[in-house]
Design a protein around this nucleic acid. Structure first.
Lengths: 325, 325
DNA sequence: CTGAAAGCGCTAACAT
DNA sequence: ATGTTAGCGCTTTCAG
């Protein structure tokens, strides 16, 4: 910047004004500065700028579980688009469901003085963020609530969605509904399971604990569990898959066997319509969820100091898949 | 940091040493400093640190077309994982195939003094990056080559993959192969089309320009084009879809009609096995592509000044889908 | 409307 | 092994 100033025959401050298109600069001087900038290939150092000016790094941090998962990719896409509209860059990192890693990544983002944080929490204690929040870094939680910290939160109606879905199964006459979930340690899984139980209880259907299977981490595991359940005496007549990875494995096994068990699945997916097996999907708009959270975050960044909100987004039941052979 | 130093009764530099766990600090002093850090809730300002130390913001930039697309999400996931292993943060931005936006985003990343850039290029002129590259910001191009800039590049064997796939169609007796593509302006689309034509020419099959359809932007458009082609006199007996979005629409329309046309598709996808229509997929490992590029980038960041490389990754033909009814 | 000086928070280079 | 000094590139403050 000093070089540019020398070249243009003006002071450093004038260059700064021109570069930041601040007012009160004679067009003639501005032109000389711009020429010097071009000749010298000057690029403003954003680091130095935000160091001096205190706040506003024009960067927000997004912490999710796993970027490659379509659910989180959709969230990232929506957040990125809103950030871009505000000329803000997005730092994305994956916790991989590891609370220690989550904490380290969030601390690092804070060290980089992001203007705000969008977090899909992995851990259950976010009190380590309290100091940052009080120092002025807003945090919005997404998809799951924060632990031990009061903060803005945008959630999905997991319980209501699950309940509505299972109610539909019950109305179709199903009494034995198997539930397959990833990990009971995850908030969304607990809520969805609770919703399923609500519907079962309301219908006076017997609740059989052996039909609930935790720890189904991937499609292959889901397939094995389905096989095992169907080979039992008194097998379930319906399956409720609590996430999209599980759904894939369940569909495959049910199709392979030519089973006529009903399938209810949380999370919609691109090819659901073309799956060769009828299923009911609990769908929702992940992009909308992320947009709501990002909007809330920017409002905080813009100085909104009102009491923290919690917003719950609805889900919808949709019939998918092709009729049975 | 000054406050911490005062509190611990040491100099600023000692605090700096402790915070950066540099050697030559008495354990006793280090402990006092750490205590002061905890009491005062001190957080190192990463901005100031990298401003002073010149380089090493421990940040890399990733520019892709669209985060929500599974192909780019996979790339982002792989890059993020490698970055994390080096305690490096990842800034991700989407160009949405807009060259102007690409340029603006890349410039912004440079202004933030990222240590390196990973780019899936949208535009055809990247000479604006030359100054940055010469000033020491390495750039690796991914999936598509740079325009007007010599740089490391990691590509897929688009042409070879397409050729092998179409050759298989030809060997199965197909002479009229329709090709559906997104935009001829995109490098990968051109290469794939060229590969298809290679195979057709090699087989002495007639090349019919009316069977090549450009501008198929989404699944719905793909479905319409398939319908139109099949309703022609002398319709194609095989379809070659040049990307995953197009494939969805083609499958749906072919299935809807109960058509027995063959389908070849670039890009594998999760549910391909369960699609109720037989298809051949040109598959590749997008994660591996991204890992190779990120590896190359980090080698450059670590000071590798050798001549720029271009690496081409192979593709593979895989049978997918369920047999026809 | 423009410029000089001070300093954001930290680390490199040099003392001690 | 620890401390002192200078300054990274920019913006703020205040004087002209």
């Amino acid at each position: 910047m000093a070089d540019v100033a020398a070249r243009a025959g003006v002071s450093l401050k004038t260059v700064s004004r021109v570069v930041n298109d601040a007012p009160h600069v004679q067009p003639e001087l501005a032109e000389r500065v711009l020429a010097a900038v071009a000749e010298l290939g000057f690029r403003r150092n954003h680091l130095a700028s935000s160091l001096r000016s205190g706040q506003a790094t024009a960067t927000i941090g997004l912490l999710i579980e796993e970027i490659a998962n379509p659910f989180y990719a959709t969230i990232a896409g929506a957040a990125a688009e809103m950030a871009r509209q505000r000329d803000t860059m997005l730092i994305i990192a994956s916790s991989e469901e590891d609370p220690a890693r989550e904490q380290q990544l969030l601390r690092d983002m804070c060290a980089r003085r992001v203007d705000g944080l969008l977090v899909v929490p992995a851990g259950h204690d976010h009190s380590f963020l309290r100091a940052e929040v009080e120092l002025g870094t807003p945090v919005v939680f997404l998809d799951r609530p924060a632990g031990k910290l009061r903060a803005d939160t945008v959630l999905l109606d997991n319980r209501g969605g699950a309940r509505a879905g299972v109610r539909r199964l019950v109305e179709a006459g199903h009494r034995r509904v198997a539930v397959l979930l990833d990990s009971i340690g995850v908030y969304t899984m607990r809520e969805r399971l609770d919703g399923a139980q609500d519907a079962l209880v309301e219908a006076g259907a017997p609740y059989d604990n052996r039909l609930v299977r935790d720890g189904v981490r991937d499609p292959a595991a889901a397939g094995r569990v389905v096989a095992e359940l169907l080979d039992q005496p008194d097998p379930p007549t319906a399956f409720f898959s609590l996430n999209n990875r599980i759904t894939l494995g369940v569909i495959e096994e049910l199709y392979r066997r030519g089973s006529d068990a009903a399938l209810l699945a949380f999370d919609d997916f691109d090819l659901a319509r073309l799956v060769p097996y009828p299923l009911t999907v609990i769908a929702y708009d992940a992009g909308e969820l992320a947009r709501a959270a990002t909007e809330l975050l920017f409002r905080r960044i813009d100085g909104d100091r009102s009491w923290p909100h919690t917003v719950v987004h609805p889900t919808e039941l949709v019939a998918r898949g092709l009729p049975n052979r």
